[in-house]
Design a protein around this nucleic acid. Sequence first.
DNA 1: TCATGATACTCATTAAAGTGAGTAGTCAGA
DNA 2: TCTGACTACTCACTTTAATGAGTATCATGA
Lengths: 192, 192
Amino acid sequence: MALRHAVLAALLDGEYSGYQLAKAFDVGVANFWHALPQQLYAELAKLEKGGLVAGRQVVQETRPNKRLFHVTDAGIAELEQFAAASAKPGFIRDDLVVKVQASDRIGSGPVIDQLDERAAAASAKIELFGNLLRQLRGEMDEDEFLLRGERIGPYLTCLRGLAFEEENRDWCLRIAALLRRRQAVAVESDGA
Amino acid sequence: MALRHAVLAALLDGEYSGYQLAKAFDVGVANFWHALPQQLYAELAKLEKGGLVAGRQVVQETRPNKRLFHVTDAGIAELEQFAAASAKPGFIRDDLVVKVQASDRIGSGPVIDQLDERAAAASAKIELFGNLLRQLRGEMDEDEFLLRGERIGPYLTCLRGLAFEEENRDWCLRIAALLRRRQAVAVESDGA
DNA sequence: TCATGATACTCATTAAAGTGAGTAGTCAGA
DNA sequence: TCTGACTACTCACTTTAATGAGTATCATGA
């Protein structure tokens, strides 16, 4: 029961339609989880059935009607319970890391390419998170906002996402450079 | 098809029985994935059926017999193909982050406790990874090992794991301290 | 001697995540 | 006017991951 709580936590920010939620989860701006629209619609339906969220129909003239959801008291209670239960440690689970693990027994060329790509993607996300953080804290400086701001949850998870992506970028760049140097060294030794 | 490749990559280090593999995956020393024994046995069976790994029976006197597995040429080819295919970006997917996202709408007490616990767990893992790295590079210094070592895959993924856990620890400590300060501030305002 | 824990697995099942395809109206630009 | 993109969803399905409960032998220590 994981996506379930991620959806509840995301909905704490206000009212969202499935579609809006889907966009946030898709980009991963909801930097603490990722899911496709279909999964979110399914999860919202389950949550509504369980009374943890409630939706209201919004009739739109020019666009299809939509349903906006918010968390109910029962939903809050569920989150409290979830927060109190002990969490198992999270881990990385990234294809790219698996590829690096294998990189010295298979051709490292494709792995290097992907490390470059990933570094670029991480950089893009770093910028995105930077903007989002600035937007969330508004006029305040960070310390002030963190201490007195009223809704800091998304800010804190965004900080985590930012640090993760920075780490990601640095590691990718370092490993890519290293694998290239090793290719060069291997060629030298071959030639010698 | 994820665990599949993680198992293949882990087996590149030598021969392992399902049980040995399970221990590595369990502690997460195979820092790039996590799985329970049953999953690994199931995966090994599938891989063997597909000819990607091969096992040989080892008869033991004092313990139950075991089967040691190694990656076949077909397995290497599979990994090559996997490495060449583009990887989707990995993300965090951690319950604790979800809890932090919700932490200012629910009681922050339990979340703070878990941040402390997690920070301690991260510290333990940092030490573990540090030892493992020292062991992997042996007498060499890091630069030398990375450039000329023959099997650096596990070292590289371990570096990633180390950085991840350091980040993890720092974030947990920072957020825990912050949430405590906010509790104090809230009490002050209440009293005023 | 009796419980605990390590080695070494298996079987059955559920829960969770992810994929593919499709509907239907609106709007902006070529 | 036709194409493609955006809003807003739904249905059906497959694949992966995770859980729970066993089996059996041997070694260690209280």
